[in-house]
């Protein structure tokens, strides 16, 4: 299956989801679906660096919040349409990802992980002290009820849902393309044995920087429409550990070696959380995510996809 065919199928599936949502006509479905799609983008972005290159990023929340806060900044400065904000969010987070990578990726992998962990704390400090984007009180963004598009009135939440759907398809298609390209093979050599890769002439630093920039940019894209979705952006929740842990747990549970892993993990874990948040409590639901993450990394290191592959291999000739 080539990239074009895959994109067409992905768009087709996306349109089916949209048609279903439209037919259902429930606002709640858009809200819940938006969250899951957002995590598909985050998990896939995390996996480009984490799963393909083997470098752990604990700062997903920071990159996500960067996207969200650049939207808030632009909203206060000069309101722009959301698709433009997504591009701005991508650029800002991508540049920060590049900078972080440049400073820490020349050293051992653990330093990068620690630096990303600390990045969230620092960016939060910056935002809390920056009154223009709301400071510690948070920022309100009043989104319009509807949007005029080519003569049609579109429900705004539906519009955001469609944007996130496009981003999810884009992220998955990018991840899949990388996996089958020379870039992906380069990433895999870094993951398996960086020293050997370097010795055989793989430009490891350049590849790692490409991965961090790309991964950061997608996380920023996922964050950019978020202020419009949530309406009230508050630093403590935007930088919350919830984003960091979910974007690690979802690929880990699904399987990190291919694009389908984060997708499977997100759909399962995301739906589970939507149900658990409504029926039990959001703290318990986070506890479940933590326990599942630890259980999966110990028992099923290759995730659900790995389990299925193993079973197929055993059954096969």
């Amino acid at each position: 299956m080539n990239a074009l065919k895959f994109s067409l199928i992905a768009i087709g599936v996306g349109l089916l989801v949209l048609a279903f949502a439209h037919w259902l006509g429930l606002d709640y479905f858009y809200y819940a679906g938006y969250t899951i799609l957002q995590f598909i983008v985050l998990a896939t972005a995390w996996n480009i660096l984490g799963g393909y290159c083997g470098y752990v990023n604990f700062g997903s929340a920071a990159f996500f919040a960067l996207g969200a806060y650049s939207s808030v900044f632009m909203h206060k400065l000069y309101p722009l349409p959301v698709p433009v904000l997504i591009v701005i969010g991508a650029v800002v987070s991508g540049v920060v990802g590049f900078g972080m990578g440049y400073l820490t990726l020349r050293l051992r992998g653990a330093f990068f992980a620690i630096a990303t962990l600390a990045l969230a704390v620092v960016l939060q400090t910056l935002v809390v002290n920056w009154d223009f984007v709301g400071g510690s009180r948070g920022a309100y963004i009043i989104r319009p009820e509807t949007l005029e598009f080519a003569g049609f009135e579109i429900n705004y939440i539906e519009y955001l849902f469609v944007l996130m759907l496009i981003l999810a398809v884009l992220a998955l298609a990018t991840a899949r393309t990388i996996e089958r390209s020379q870039l992906g093979f380069g990433f895999a050599t870094i993951r398996d044995d960086e020293m050997a890769a370097e010795a055989s002439g793989v430009p490891t630093l350049r590849l790692k920087l490409i991965a961090t920039t790309l991964s950061g940019a997608f996380m920023g894209m996922a964050g950019a429409p978020f202020p419009y979705y949530i309406g009230y952006l508050q630093p403590a929740s935007t930088f919350g550990l919830e984003y960091a842990v979910n974007s690690i747990a979802m690929p880990m549970i699904g399987g990190t070696t291919s694009w389908i892993g984060p997708l499977v993990g997100t759909i399962l874990l995301g739906s589970l959380q939507q149900i658990a948040t409504v029926t039990i409590s959001s703290a318990v639901n986070l506890l479940i995510v933590g326990i599942l993450l630890v259980a999966f990394v110990i028992i099923a290191p290759n995730g659900l996809v790995g389990l299925v592959q193993e079973r197929l291999r055993r059954r096969g000739p």
Partner: peptide, 11 residues
């Protein structure tokens, strides 16, 4: 490197 870190993060 990857899963060990995720393990501690989970803890």
């Amino acid at each position: 490197s990857l899963r060990g870190l995720a393990f501690f993060f989970g803890l």
